[in-house]
Design a protein around this nucleic acid. Structure first.
Lengths: 195, 195
DNA sequence: GTCTATAGATCGATAGAC
DNA sequence: GTCTATCGATCTATAGAC
């Protein structure tokens, strides 16, 4: 029953988003044309507009979905009460969640400037919420005497930057497993904020 | 003797690069047109081609110049022999050099994918050289017992990512001086790699 | 829901006058 | 060294057939 035309049982939408995610990450939002995305999916450019009102919405939806997924996954994670153990959980969570979604992470950071002002504010608020989650752990640990940091806000930014940096060098099938990378970074994070 | 046309005493070239740097950082290479750059400088688009063979060369020259300047500045810096002091020097150097050139740093990282293969290799080699400089400090310190890190290569990548992250949140005239930021990050770096 | 066709705008780069 | 003018290509988005 193969059809070369017509309905695709509702799979075209996800395939468009998947193609856009990959192409935006590889070449950048501005450098990717709607025709390229359509070609990757196997439809004509006009068909994309059955699924998105315009290119900007396509970008925003990808970023919004990624940030919402990140926040939801962290919220759903079972977290130890102890600040030290909670910081380790955050470290390993951040590395593994981001490594498994390298394209989305890249886009969520690189394409902020291509969002309209309204869309930018929405994404920034979600990013801020995630940073706040880490800062809360640090604040708890400082209050309890487990951690000593010069400034909890800056320490949170520093830890996130350090951990997200894994995405720039890690390659699947390299010399280190994801778990080993987590252990290596946890060692550095733990010492960096230690009392 | 004001002239609205004709030679501008050799200042047009630098002004073109300055305008391109600013616009590429704000909107991204692919999103900026040669006409936009020309308009920022106050010339017509055709005039740009007296200074660059094409748009790609304009981008590459900006990135190459930035990386060469970074390497030259680090090489010229007077560096203590002691690994701990040398790591502090690197930390403060990296933060201040990069903060003072935020646009170029942003471009050198974000626009790598818009380089031709040959140009990409050239920039990557320079970046690698810079990473090696930091790794050498860590290796020395580990050998001397001053530092303990799980992996000198990864530690170098982690420190650079953490330090470069300052550019995402630091704003001139904010609550912290550049020197205070350096001290805060040095505290975290020092502890992260401490024996 | 996808197609073809196209409107209307903009792009990088070049040619030739001054 | 800069201008005006333009070529040929490409872009987003829409209209209307099927």
């Amino acid at each position: 029953m193969a059809r070369t035309q017509g309905s695709h049982s509702g799979v075209t939408g996800p395939r468009i988003r998947s193609a856009a995610l990959k192409l935006f990450a590889q070449q950048g939002y501005a450098a990717v044309s709607m025709r390229q995305i359509a070609s990757e999916v196997g439809v004509q450019a006009g068909a994309l507009y059955n699924y998105t009102p315009d290119k900007q919405s396509l970008l925003f939806d990808l970023m919004e979905e990624h940030m919402a997924g990140l926040l939801a996954a962290w919220a759903a994670l079972e977290k130890p009460a102890d600040p030290l153990a909670r910081l380790e959980a955050f470290t390993r969570f951040h590395i593994s969640y981001n490594l498994e979604r390298a394209d989305a992470v890249f886009i969520a950071y690189m394409e902020l400037r291509n969002l309209t002002a309204k869309n930018f504010d929405a994404i920034e608020a979600m990013r801020r919420q995630y940073e706040d989650a880490l800062e809360a752990i640090l604040t708890d640990g400082v209050a309890g005497g487990t951690f000593t940091v010069p400034d909890t806000r800056i320490a949170a930014m520093a830890v996130i930057a350090m951990l997200t940096g894994v995405n720039t060098w890690y390659r699947e099938g390299g010399r280190l497993s994801l778990d080993e990378v987590g252990t290596i970074y946890w060692d550095m994070v733990r010492k960096a904020v230690a009392a």
